[in-house]
Design a protein around this nucleic acid. Structure first.
Lengths: 210, 210
DNA sequence: ATAAAATGAATGATCATTCATTCATTTTTC
DNA sequence: GAAAAATGAATGAATGATCATTCATTTTAT
């Protein structure tokens, strides 16, 4: 990932939306590289190839830039999530599996992207806005997962299987696998991670996953 | 959690070890409250009820203070882990369960403490020292878990159960449950978290957990 | 008296924000 | 169509606040 590589002179002015997007992308890159502590407005500007003033022009403050960056991440994920649901097979089991696969997909479970997620989670307790955005994000995700699990339980007549528990276990597992990918990149393996998730699905819903 | 409440005048001088410990505790409190970005040497000194200079005297630099703080957390957890192993029943299944319970125990799975763990994880990619400490920590934990799982698999003659997979699933699950406790404190429930873990154990090792 | 712990102000660096100025584009006037 | 005026994007230096580190001095323990 080369920072601030510019192969040709950029247009000096650009639409507001494009500029904001450019600055958010630069922010993501800076956070991924330097963490939240090391992310400065100066560095965001440098990575974006723009001036420091324009960051403030578009986002008013550093706090707002970071908040908007987190919102962007959340919205981006949401779009992927919805597309995954729309494009997967019609059954609840297929959709659930597709969502698990989404979380471990190279473009989502990418170490740069994970570093950014964890950077915001790391500040969630001290910055209530981040916590709210993350909470809302999780909640949406979980509701869909819950419906899918309930559907599978009904379909497969699984007794003693609690849908909420399965959702808690699955979503925790993927978050934890993300952490492992971040902390232990050398020993982490995408397929093994998927196998761990799949083996859970197989254990809980043997008639749907085996 | 009252910061810097002093009910009586502290001794002006104190042993080196006690001072360092005091400063590390103050650091943990600051990180829990303000995050890593908001943790300053000035605030650590204030919370410890000491001068700014003494923080540098004992730790040389902010970076070193934070690194030592992470090491302290890791060592503290390790001591608890070993004590839990020593005090649990003799069987692998009992020990594994005890370790799962340790992770969800109020004194360990405490939102202040979690905030600090996540703060360091959030900077793991940008601060290689943090990553190394966390990686080593995880590795030790996982080795013990692996042996316990292998033992249970042998004892219960579980076919098609892969010990490494179970370890990956369990440790990810607890990390993810920690994240949920941090992001969603209002809806998070310790017993439900444990139930999710226990149901996984029951699904994978039905002859040992039910 | 000496050595070590501890203080807290000074220091220089860094940072987020501001703002005077420049630049590019659009609109208006002729 | 061309030139001038208006508008808004963009620049980057200035500014004041904040911060980590340093160090001269004070305090404490032996």
């Amino acid at each position: 990932m080369a920072l601030a590589v510019r192969t040709q002179p950029a247009k000096r002015t650009e639409s507001r939306a494009k500029r904001r997007r450019q600055l958010i992308n630069a922010t993501i890159r800076c956070i991924a590289r330097r963490g939240l502590s090391g992310t400065t407005m100066g560095e965001v500007a440098r990575v974006a190839g723009l001036s420091q003033g324009i960051v403030n022009l578009h986002f008013q403050s550093k706090d707002n830039l970071l908040t908007e960056t987190l919102r962007f991440l959340s919205d981006e994920y949401k779009a992927l999530f919805e597309r995954t649901l729309a494009q997967s097979g019609p059954g609840a089991a297929e959709k659930l599996l597709a969502l698990m696969q989404l979380d471990l997909k190279p473009s989502v479970c990418d170490r740069q992207k994970l570093a950014v997620w964890f950077a915001f989670w790391g500040e969630a307790k001290s910055v209530p806005t981040y916590q709210k955005i993350c909470d809302a994000h999780d909640r949406e995700y979980d509701e869909v997962m819950l419906k899918l699990c309930e559907s599978i339980i009904n379909d497969g007549r699984y007794k003693g299987v609690n849908a909420q528990q399965v959702v808690d276990a699955l979503s925790s597992m993927t978050d934890g696998l993300w952490l492992a990918a971040l902390i232990r990149p050398k020993s982490w393996d995408r397929h093994e991670a998927f196998d761990a998730v799949y083996s859970y699905l197989g254990a809980v819903f043997p008639r749907h996953y085996s």
